[in-house]
Simulated scan of single mutants.
Amino acid sequence: MSDLTIRDVQAAAWANKLAKGFNTTDTALEFGLLTGEVGEAFTAWRKRLPDLGEELADVLLYLVSLAEMNGIDLQAEVEAKLAKNTARTYEADANGVLVKTSN
Protein backbone atom coordinates (compact mmCIF):
# COMPACT_ATOMS: atom_id res chain seq x y z
CA MET A 1 0.00 0.00 0.00
CA SER A 2 1.32 3.41 -0.90
CA ASP A 3 -0.03 6.93 -1.15
CA LEU A 4 -2.88 6.08 1.20
CA THR A 5 -5.26 8.81 2.27
CA ILE A 6 -6.75 8.98 5.73
CA ARG A 7 -10.01 7.83 4.12
CA ASP A 8 -8.22 4.79 2.68
CA VAL A 9 -6.76 3.89 6.07
CA GLN A 10 -10.12 4.40 7.76
CA ALA A 11 -11.86 2.13 5.24
CA ALA A 12 -9.15 -0.56 5.44
CA ALA A 13 -9.11 -0.56 9.25
CA TRP A 14 -12.89 -0.85 9.33
CA ALA A 15 -12.93 -3.66 6.76
CA ASN A 16 -10.39 -5.56 8.88
CA LYS A 17 -12.52 -5.12 12.01
CA LEU A 18 -15.55 -6.46 10.15
CA ALA A 19 -13.63 -9.38 8.62
CA LYS A 20 -12.13 -10.41 11.97
CA GLY A 21 -15.24 -9.85 14.09
CA PHE A 22 -13.61 -7.13 16.20
CA ASN A 23 -15.58 -4.48 18.09
CA THR A 24 -17.59 -2.20 15.81
CA THR A 25 -20.29 -0.91 18.15
CA ASP A 26 -18.91 -0.15 21.61
CA THR A 27 -17.37 3.32 21.46
CA ALA A 28 -16.36 3.32 25.13
CA LEU A 29 -14.49 0.05 24.69
CA GLU A 30 -12.74 1.40 21.61
CA PHE A 31 -11.61 4.50 23.53
CA GLY A 32 -10.26 2.22 26.24
CA LEU A 33 -8.38 0.12 23.70
CA LEU A 34 -7.02 3.28 22.06
CA THR A 35 -5.79 4.48 25.44
CA GLY A 36 -4.00 1.17 25.91
CA GLU A 37 -2.32 1.52 22.53
CA VAL A 38 -1.16 5.06 23.37
CA GLY A 39 0.32 3.62 26.56
CA GLU A 40 2.12 0.92 24.59
CA ALA A 41 3.50 3.54 22.19
CA PHE A 42 4.72 5.64 25.11
CA THR A 43 6.42 2.63 26.67
CA ALA A 44 8.10 1.78 23.36
CA TRP A 45 9.36 5.36 23.09
CA ARG A 46 10.47 5.58 26.72
CA LYS A 47 12.33 2.29 26.58
CA ARG A 48 13.66 3.00 23.09
CA LEU A 49 12.11 -0.21 21.79
CA PRO A 50 12.30 -0.97 18.08
CA ASP A 51 8.51 -1.28 17.70
CA LEU A 52 7.60 2.38 18.31
CA GLY A 53 6.49 2.79 14.70
CA GLU A 54 4.24 -0.26 14.90
CA GLU A 55 2.72 0.98 18.16
CA LEU A 56 2.03 4.40 16.61
CA ALA A 57 0.40 2.62 13.67
CA ASP A 58 -1.85 0.79 16.15
CA VAL A 59 -2.86 4.15 17.63
CA LEU A 60 -3.80 5.41 14.18
CA LEU A 61 -5.80 2.30 13.36
CA TYR A 62 -7.81 2.52 16.58
CA LEU A 63 -8.35 6.23 16.01
CA VAL A 64 -9.68 5.85 12.46
CA SER A 65 -11.86 2.97 13.62
CA LEU A 66 -13.36 5.20 16.30
CA ALA A 67 -14.07 7.80 13.64
CA GLU A 68 -15.77 5.23 11.41
CA MET A 69 -17.75 3.84 14.34
CA ASN A 70 -19.14 7.33 14.93
CA GLY A 71 -19.78 8.30 11.31
CA ILE A 72 -16.92 10.78 11.12
CA ASP A 73 -14.95 11.44 7.95
CA LEU A 74 -11.62 11.83 9.73
CA GLN A 75 -9.84 13.07 6.62
CA ALA A 76 -12.29 15.97 6.29
CA GLU A 77 -11.95 16.73 10.00
CA VAL A 78 -8.14 16.68 9.85
CA GLU A 79 -8.11 18.92 6.78
CA ALA A 80 -10.46 21.41 8.47
CA LYS A 81 -8.45 21.35 11.70
CA LEU A 82 -5.14 21.89 9.88
CA ALA A 83 -6.63 24.90 8.09
CA LYS A 84 -7.95 26.28 11.39
CA ASN A 85 -4.59 25.77 13.13
CA THR A 86 -2.73 27.40 10.25
CA ALA A 87 -4.92 30.51 10.51
CA ARG A 88 -4.48 30.86 14.30
CA THR A 89 -2.03 33.33 15.74
CA TYR A 90 -0.07 33.11 18.97
CA GLU A 91 1.97 35.53 21.06
CA ALA A 92 4.36 34.84 23.89
CA ASP A 93 3.21 36.03 27.31
CA ALA A 94 5.55 37.52 29.94
CA ASN A 95 6.83 34.01 30.76
CA GLY A 96 7.51 33.13 27.15
CA VAL A 97 4.52 30.79 26.95
CA LEU A 98 2.68 30.95 23.63
CA VAL A 99 -0.91 32.09 24.05
CA LYS A 100 -3.51 31.85 21.28
CA THR A 101 -4.56 35.32 20.13
CA SER A 102 -7.09 34.28 17.47
CA ASN A 103 -9.31 31.32 16.71
Score class of each variant (00 low, 15 high):
D93M: 09
V64R: 00
L66S: 04
F31P: 01
I72P: 02
L66H: 04
K100C: 11
A15D: 15
K84L: 14
Y90R: 07
V78M: 10
R46V: 09
K84W: 09
A12T: 14
A92T: 10
S65W: 00
V99R: 14
Y62K: 00
A87T: 12
L34D: 09
A11F: 05
K47C: 05
D73N: 10
T24Q: 13
R46E: 14
R46S: 15
D26E: 09
A80I: 05
D73I: 04
K47E: 06
R88H: 07
Q10Y: 11
L60A: 14
N23A: 12
P50C: 09
N23Y: 08
K17D: 13
A19P: 10
Y62F: 15
L98K: 12
T86W: 12
S102A: 08
N85W: 10
L56A: 09
S102W: 11
I6E: 12
N103Y: 13
Q10F: 12
D51I: 03
A92M: 10
D8R: 00
T43Y: 01
E54T: 12
A80V: 06
W14I: 07
A57N: 10
A83T: 08
A67K: 00
D8Y: 05
L74D: 08
N70E: 13
V38A: 09
M69T: 04
P50R: 15
E54Q: 12
L52Y: 05
A11D: 15
L98C: 06
I72F: 04
M69N: 04
D58S: 01
D26W: 02
A41M: 02
F31G: 06
G53R: 03
G53W: 02
T43I: 01
G36C: 06
L74M: 06
E68V: 03
T101H: 12
K47P: 02
Q10R: 12
A92I: 05
A57K: 00
A13Y: 05
L29F: 11
G71I: 01
L66P: 00
A44Q: 00
A57Q: 09
A83I: 13
T35V: 09
A76I: 07
A92G: 06
T101F: 13
S2N: 15
S65V: 04
L63N: 00
E54A: 15
D51P: 04
D26L: 08
L74P: 06
V78S: 03
T101I: 15
L82H: 11
S2Q: 15
L33K: 07
V99Q: 08
E79A: 02
R46Q: 15
L52P: 02
D58L: 01
D26K: 11
N23V: 05
V38R: 02
V97M: 11
T35A: 13
Y90M: 06
Q10G: 03
Y62T: 01
T25R: 11
W45G: 05
L49F: 09
Y62M: 11
A83D: 14
Q10K: 10
S65E: 08
A83C: 05
F22G: 01
L52S: 05
F22V: 03
T27W: 12
V59K: 02
T43L: 00
W45M: 11
E68W: 07
A92P: 01
T24E: 10
W14V: 10
K81M: 11
L33P: 04
A94G: 11
L66W: 00
F42N: 02
K47D: 02
D3S: 14
E55L: 01
L61Q: 04
